[in-house]
Amino acid sequence: MNILKKMCVILLGSILLSIGINFFLVPFELLDGGIIGIGLIIKYLTGIKPGLAIILLSVPIFALAWFHNKSYFYNSLHGMLFSSFVIDLLAPSRSILPEFQIPAVFSSILGGIFVGLGIGIMLRHETSTGGTDLLAQFLSKIFKINVGILIFIIDALVICLGGLLLSKETFFLSCVTITVVGLFTSLCTWNIKGSNIKTS
């Protein structure tokens, strides 16, 4: 894929991801899984910008990728940096636009749709926002457990942590969100063979 097309894909994916997070997840303190979810927990508890938190949390994962999986490093670094920047860049627009007067459960679904589409579009064009899948791949080799199961476990732990630190409502609605994210990511990446990049 040429550079211009890849940048357009990253821009579109990042905007969709940012809309899902800023307009539908953040107002109700909802979570996605993986690194994005941990970044949102940090934002809710400390006020630190989630994009900045995602970048800082991703440093050890990308360091690991640099030494053990350079294709993952190159395919994901620009997507992670740009999407994190856009998440923080668009955050102030919540105060400019009228608040969405919708129930939390619908917000969790709509947030999941936007996040899933953003992630899926990038994955379909062989880029991503990075995530915890590299860690899952290494743990899979150590413990001989399917990598998909480990990714699911990591996401579940993030959601459970959010439930403990934030609220039971956060836990249940975030379960809805990650289910919808997974569905729409899968729809976007349907018929792609050999893709093992999963973002969070």
Rank of each mutant, 00 (worst) to 15 (best):
L31T: 02
D32F: 12
G33E: 10
G33M: 12
I36F: 10
G37P: 05
G37W: 11
G37C: 09
I38W: 05
I41W: 08
I41P: 09
L45Y: 08
T46E: 03
T46S: 09
I48P: 01
G51A: 12
I54R: 00
I54P: 00
I55Q: 00
L56K: 00
L56F: 07
L57H: 08
S58V: 02
V59M: 12
F62S: 01
F67G: 06
H68D: 05
S71K: 14
S71M: 11
F73Y: 05
S76A: 13
L77I: 10
L77E: 07
G79P: 06
M80F: 04
F82S: 03
F85W: 14
V86D: 01
D88L: 13
L89C: 15
L89E: 13
L90G: 07
A91W: 14
A91C: 08
S93P: 00
S93C: 11
L97D: 11
P98I: 10
E99F: 15
F100Y: 15
Q101A: 15
I102A: 09
I102G: 07
V105K: 06
F106Q: 12
F106Y: 15
F106R: 10
S107Q: 13
S108M: 03
I109M: 05
G111L: 04
G112T: 07
G112R: 02
G112M: 03
I113Q: 01
I113K: 01
F114P: 05
V115Y: 02
G116I: 00
G118L: 00
G118A: 00
I119H: 02
I121D: 02
M122P: 09
L123P: 03
E126I: 04
E126D: 08
S128A: 13
S128G: 12
T129E: 01
T132K: 04
D133I: 13
L134E: 07
A136Y: 07
F138T: 00
F138R: 03
F138Y: 08
L139T: 08
S140A: 05
K141N: 10
I142Y: 12
I142L: 13
K144R: 07
I145G: 06
G148S: 10
L150I: 15
F152C: 14
I153V: 15
I153W: 09
I154M: 11
D155L: 11
D155A: 06
A156R: 11
A156N: 09
L157C: 14
V158Y: 14
V158A: 09
I159G: 06
L161N: 02
G162R: 10
G163C: 04
L164D: 01
S167V: 09
K168Y: 10
E169C: 01
E169Y: 00
T170M: 13
F172K: 08
L173M: 15
L173H: 15
L173C: 11
